[in-house]
Amino acid sequence: MLHKREYYEKMVNEPRNPSHWHALYLDKSVPFNPDAKAAFLYDSSSKSRQFLYPVAKVFARLSIVLMQLFKIVIPNLINAPKLLHKCLYLGMKYFITPEANFVILRHFYLGSEVLRFIKDNVDGAQDIPMNPLKPLSVNEVKDNLFLEHDLNLYNFIINLNIAIAEKGLQIVKKDNPDFSAISEGEIPFENFRDGWTNFIDLGTAIELFTPVYQFYLTDNDFWRATNSLQLDEVIGIYASTIMDCPEKLTALNNKHPMIPLPTAGAAFRLLLHGFSTEVLHGMLVQRKISLQKEK
């Protein structure tokens, strides 16, 4: 995605017609990996995002509501996570932009690093089981990647807090946090397909994928998956407590992790979830580099 970064860095500003995306790329108020930021903004500025997204959003959310009504009667008729992930894999490989695939796979990779960082910095929590997900190609989506990601988040929070209750552990400020789990360099992803059919942007893809996700899972599994999107602030609080910087949670907090929201809006919340992960990881990378310079 380096060429997308260069695209914005070499862009010439026109004072009478400034670019919204150029301004956001240059802004450094929110920590964000520059390659991921360039890919995200380039993808967001596409014609697909501008024209296809509004239409897809209406039909996708209507499908979710209708499917929810159907699953009130038969909540467990379909439970096919393998088939779900086969569909997700095919959609990602052949129809989603390379930039969107880059951002999606980064999400799983970074999410695993953030959870490991928290574990490494809670004294006595080293025996908590982990299942790191670090996919390097779209092909790995077929291994129930999305479902495993949700389960990892729930199991980590549950296991960590059981250990806190049973062993008297504490999540506290660390003067010298262990940043060994946080990578700074480029993630070695395999090249993403960039054919003429790879035109669907991230936002539109998520809207379209959400009812597919709902269709192939039981009602309980889909409900659990959508509720997991409310846990960004929980993870953010853990990390910011360790680093003693609660003021940095501006782009992470959802203010209501215990209040479930309608499933129809899950696609937009998934976008925010991915954004939050990038911001939190970017914040950790900045602190890691800053401490390295101080030594």
Rank of each mutant, 00 (worst) to 15 (best):
L208S: 01
D232R: 01
V285Y: 07
D232L: 10
R224C: 00
I235Q: 05
I187P: 01
L52E: 05
G185M: 03
I128G: 08
T204W: 00
K28I: 02
L88K: 05
I206W: 04
K93V: 11
I78E: 00
Y53E: 09
F108T: 01
M243C: 13
L136I: 08
V172P: 01
V103M: 04
E184Y: 05
M258D: 11
P211Q: 01
S29H: 10
L62N: 15
Y213V: 00
Q68C: 12
A60Y: 13
L249C: 06
T263P: 07
K255Y: 15
D201V: 04
H3E: 15
L229I: 12
S183W: 09
S48M: 01
E14M: 08
N161M: 12
N191E: 15
N220I: 14
S183P: 05
I128P: 02
Y154N: 09
P54A: 08
V172H: 02
I200W: 00
G111W: 08
V122S: 06
E184H: 11
Y42P: 06
F268S: 10
K93H: 06
N17C: 10
T277Y: 00
K28C: 02
K71A: 10
N139Q: 15
M283P: 10
S276D: 15
P129G: 08
E186R: 11
L83A: 04
L83H: 03
Q292L: 15
S45Q: 09
A36P: 03
F156Y: 13
F70K: 14
F51W: 13
G195S: 13
E14K: 10
L153A: 11
K248F: 11
A125D: 12
S183A: 12
E9D: 06
I200H: 00
Y25R: 03
A267N: 01
P132F: 05
V65M: 08
H149G: 10
I289M: 13
W196P: 05
I64W: 00
K28Y: 02
S46W: 07
F189G: 03
F199R: 13
L208A: 09
E247V: 14
P15V: 00
D127T: 15
F268L: 13
I78Y: 09
L90Y: 14
F32Y: 14
L280R: 09
L2H: 15
L153Q: 14
V141R: 00
F268N: 11
E233M: 09
K82V: 03
M243T: 14
N121I: 02
F189I: 02
Q292F: 07
S63Q: 13
E6V: 06
E186A: 08
P98F: 03
M11V: 05
L284W: 01
H22T: 06
W223A: 13
T277V: 12
I206N: 03
G265W: 00
A125Q: 08
G282E: 02
M11A: 11
C87W: 07
I128K: 11
F215C: 00
P129E: 01
P75F: 10
F209H: 06
S44T: 04
D178N: 13
L115P: 04
T277H: 07
D27T: 03
G265T: 04
N220C: 09
E294G: 10
Y238K: 07
P18F: 11
V103D: 03
A56I: 05
S180G: 01
R193C: 09
L217W: 00
Y53S: 12
L202A: 04
V30F: 06
Y25L: 07
M243H: 07
T204H: 01
F51G: 03
